[in-house]
């Protein structure tokens, strides 16, 4: 894939990745629903994935794409664990509000 469609501009894809990442970050901070917060981390992952593949394209190797495989792995593992935790927390407090667990701050 080296040299393939090189007319595409790396910066444009970095732009998209950065926007997705920033949106995920903002969403993670502003949303109070635990599930949506984790969904926003997935959004950040998306930004990273786009960036990684864009860099892989730019450098003409596949290391970025290989790395995306691991990102997907982590995302899947994170989703499984986080959602299990969320379900557990929901069963305790009957709410998805992150503020309900504010006492974890100590």
């Amino acid at each position: 894939m080296t040299g393939e469609m090189p007319s595409l501009v790396l910066s444009h894809f970095l732009l998209t990745g950065a926007v997705l990442f920033a949106l995920g970050l903002i969403g993670f901070v502003t949303r109070r629903n635990l599930i949506i917060m984790f969904l926003c981390t997935e959004l950040m992952f998306q930004g990273v994935v786009v960036t990684l593949v864009a860099f892989a394209f730019y450098h003409g190797n596949l290391e970025g794409q290989s790395f995306v495989i691991f990102v997907l792995t982590i995302a899947a593992a994170e989703a499984a664990l986080a959602l299990a935790l969320v379900v557990l927390l929901f069963r305790r407090r009957r709410t998805l509000d992150a503020a309900a667990w504010a006492d974890l701050r100590g």
Binding site: A18, V19, F21, A22, L23, L25, I26, V29, T30, R31, R32, N33, I36, T95, L96, D97, A98, A99
Partner: peptide
């Protein structure tokens, strides 16, 4: 309410877009 009201939208947006 936790779905209807954002938490700290101003600070989050400012910080997020500074990062952006």
């Amino acid at each position: 309410a936790y779905d209807r009201i954002a938490r700290e939208p101003l600070a989050a947006t400012v910080v997020g877009f500074l990062l952006l």
